[in-house]
């Protein structure tokens, strides 16, 4: 009887240990990539853009004709190219992070350079788009549509430039092998910021160019 009780107690103890180990494994896997502060910053940025997007949608309902005419003057293909370039740039940053997880700092840095080069296409197209509108005599003061168009897209462009600066410093640190498996938070924070810029554009593009 006592023997049986002992065996049961041991079984329960082993099972309990297994559960604790399983919980620890789950907790280890459920890790927020990057610094917590960066994620609060990302949430703040997303909120600011949400207000701008909703403001744009409401203004469109108040000035339907003006917004239809304004959208007709935009170059939809350039918006499409910019979307494709930002998605591709984000893809290279994701590949760089995978390399960094494997401890290949130099390879990760090279992929970040490719990501930034692709982002340069976005910047070039955006500048071309602005210049072609200026040539037509359209600027931020033309009407409400173009005020919001320039304000939102330029604000987003500023985020792209800031993202490129962040990725520049991250790439330098990665090339010097200053990140390792236990110290990769800075790299992840930079990558997450870049993906946020991409996330914003995938809402901005249909809102301003498509619908």
């Amino acid at each position: 009887m006592n023997k049986s009780l002992n065996i049961d107690a041991q079984t329960v103890s082993v099972e309990a240990n297994k559960t604790v180990e399983a919980n620890n494994t789950v907790q280890a896997e459920k890790r927020l990539p990057g610094d917590l502060a960066m994620w609060f910053f990302i949430l703040a940025e997303l909120t600011v853009f949400a207000v701008l997007f909703i403001g744009f949608a409401v203004s469109e309902q108040l000035n339907v004709e003006m917004f239809v005419q304004g959208k007709a003057k935009l170059h939809q293909i350039s918006g499409l190219i910019n979307t494709l370039t930002l998605i591709t740039s984000s893809f290279f940053v994701a590949l760089a992070l995978t390399q960094m997880h494997q401890g290949n700092g130099k390879q990760a840095a090279k992929l970040l350079v490719v990501a930034k080069l692709v982002a340069c296409i976005y910047i070039s197209v955006k500048i071309w788009e602005y210049l072609s509108l200026f040539e037509q005599g359209i600027d931020i003061e033309t009407n409400t549509f173009f005020t919001l168009y320039f304000m939102i897209t330029f604000f987003h462009l500023m985020h792209i430039l800031l993202g490129m600066v962040i990725l520049f410093f991250v790439a330098i640190k990665a090339a010097k092998n200053e990140y390792n498996a236990s110290n990769i938070s800075g790299f992840e924070s930079g990558a997450s910021y870049w993906h946020m810029v991409d996330l914003l554009w995938i809402i901005l593009f249909p809102l301003i160019y498509v619908i």
Binding site: P33, S90, F91, A191, H195, D198, L199, I202
Partner: peptide, 11 residues
């Protein structure tokens, strides 16, 4: 973007 690129599926 959230699940794959940002790796939040594991967060």
């Amino acid at each position: 973007i959230i699940d794959i690129f940002m790796e939040l599926k594991k967060a």
